[in-house]
Design a protein around this nucleic acid. Structure first.
Lengths: 358, 358
DNA sequence: TCCCTTATTGCCACCGGTGTCAACGCCTGA
DNA sequence: TCAGGCGTTGACACCGGTGGCAATAAGGGA
């Protein structure tokens, strides 16, 4: 095998240990200029069919793959997709991330994750540095940062493509993904009202998140549609965290009129409320129904399993990526809900049931 | 605002909208060659103090930051750290990721996440492509992939620095982080034995993970130390997932001699076992004690809160990064356990208690 | 005083691609 | 026969840094 005419190695002596083939190697072997090779790898239509085939053959033979770093330098655009987030909820991050990866896998693009903290004084400087050092192919902004106007301004200024994921339609529909949290919360309200609950509490997320407002608003709408309204004393603000949910739950339990049902702005807080209920010695569902939001893994692991509103975060990650990079990347046809919009859906489990006389 | 003398732009006419300063700009203004500037940004010791100060001043004045892409091309080393994983457990991923980010934040390095699936036939090709396209500054291999010899071979071949996180000491101590899972499991066994349990079951993770074996082995050791042993019928293999835990739990509940305690290879499975126990109508802790492993967020959200073994995954991510990049990056002193080794610790909560007569 | 070091610095090629634009061959219509 | 147009290709500069090595200045020893 060794002797005889060189199979795929070039004819001249090759002392070098091994080196990734470059565009020059391809050009030489295909007897064209490197510019033409460049055209081929960039799928330019201005290449003769035969030339293209010849080059493709050489590329395949050599196992050539263009160097993303060099391409990045020359074209002033890297082959990296950024995910910028500021999130109290790791599950959200992982899901969005996974959605993006679903789309870019195998495309040569890579995902760079960049957490930040909007309360830091140099938050913007940090993100700005990131953005204009790496000249990202695109950036996905999940709901935790999608409404930060300063951030968006930085992105726009640096001419970096971006897609925003938010609970409501923003001013740039063409690069937004809407999650319609309000719809989901409305379903939760209808569900509880339908079970006969009248005294229903709400534990919402922090004021700084649009989703908190949307979920609360949808819930209030749902109640109203059922002829109910949200008692101020049963309308608590918490922080989207488990611990804040525990505290809110304790306050509810200590309230003079105890609710028969609680709708929480997310599953973490719902788990916290469940804990508070149990501390009181009451039963979830039998005594007090609890409904969460997100359908995080936690929801199905609790006992009784949590009734919640499924928010397909991973899908939003996928949709955002498609928006960002075009659908040329997606081999598999996307689920038909790829219209830049996603609809939450109530998942009824065991933590909610009909109101019982007491 | 448009008219008027340019504020901070250079004196000559600047038609260009705005452009990031380059090393050339710095060199020109500091009156040195760009090579010298390069030396300064790379902290070369062979630069005259005054020259360095002059250049630093210009850099600061201009707000110059070197382009990582260009640097990557020239030096054949990118400024990206890779995290390669193949993990059934998102929480693990998020924690490791966060640990790495703790260290590289603000250093100019960025984190690229690259999931893979070791059962795919082209798994290795995919990872190899990733690795030698991006010439990573370093790669962190969490336990899910750290013992894949093929993968490690690829890394070594491409001369990419890497650190492996594993449950036991590997053959390359200098670039490994050890989690000592065995110790943790032993503590769990001692805990349960100390509570008087004799009939103790174990639900372990999949055969393909070293950690499954280590945790099981540590558990068996602990039992043995207490004069107990693991009944074959109570020694179940599951898959580290919630669902597999439910199924294992159901099998245990159906077993002729029901255990009074169960130690699970991770919290997810423990949650599954809890569910199975409840389905049977039994009480966790009172009837059957359950102990998990990981101390994931789930553990404290369950009711009763899960006794488990805390495994500081985030710390391992931090330690791995330090190993990889040296401690020059870490502003804050690292916790003193930075010896390439981490020790699990039992966290007693409410899911385990003394054995009760029945 | 001269040669050899050591400390600093600059020159220039190069990393592996892309952008710009000119050039070439061939066909068409005048 | 010739200008013009289309399809295709290549030459060359350039992206923004780093590597290798020579050049230069200053200091020390013989």
């Amino acid at each position: 095998m060794k002797p005889g005419p060189a199979t795929k190695s070039s004819t001249h002596a090759a002392i070098e240990p091994k080196r990734r083939p470059t565009i020059n190697d391809v050009a030489r072997l295909a007897n064209v200029s490197k510019k033409t090779v460049s055209r081929v790898i960039n799928q330019s239509p201005f290449v003769n069919k035969e030339t293209r085939e010849r080059i493709d053959a050489v590329i395949k033979d050599l196992g050539y793959a263009p160097d993303p770093v060099a391409r990045g330098l020359a074209s002033r655009r890297s082959y990296l997709v950024g995910l910028i987030y500021d999130n109290p909820n790791p599950q959200h991050v992982i899901d969005t991330q996974q959605g993006i990866l679903d789309i870019i896998r195998g495309s040569g693009l890579e995902l760079v994750v960049h957490p930040c903290n909007r309360r830091d004084k140099d938050f913007l400087a940090g993100v700005r540095g990131f953005i204009d050092r790496q000249k990202l192919a695109g950036v996905v902004l999940p709901s935790s940062v999608s409404e930060d106007d300063d951030l968006v301004a930085v992105l726009r200024e640096s001419e970096t493509p971006y897609v925003r994921i938010a609970s409501v339609l923003l001013d740039e529909p063409e690069n937004s993904i809407v999650t319609n949290d309000r719809e989901g919360a409305r379903q939760a309200a209808e569900h509880l009202a339908g079970l006969g609950h009248k005294v229903i509490a709400h534990v919402s997320g922090p004021d700084t998140f649009r989703s908190s407002h949307e979920r609360r608003a949808g819930f209030v709408e749902g109640l109203k549609a059922a002829g109910l309204q949200l008692d101020k004393k049963l309308d608590l603000r918490a922080g989207y965290t488990f611990q804040s949910g525990v505290e809110a739950g304790r306050r509810l339990m200590a309230n003079q009129t105890r609710p028969t049902a609680v709708f929480c702005g997310n599953d973490e807080m719902a788990a916290g409320v469940c804990q508070a209920i149990r501390e009181t010695g009451l039963d979830i569902c039998k005594d007090i129904s609890v409904v969460g939001f997100d359908d995080s893994p936690l929801a199905s692991r609790l006992w009784p399993a949590l009734t919640t509103v499924l928010l397909p975060i991973r899908s939003t990650g996928r949709m955002a990526s498609v928006r960002l990079l075009g659908d040329r990347l997606t081999k598999e046809p996307l689920e038909d809900d790829d219209l830049g919009e996603v609809h939450p859906r109530l998942v009824v489990r065991a933590s909610s049931g009909p109101v019982t006389k007491s």
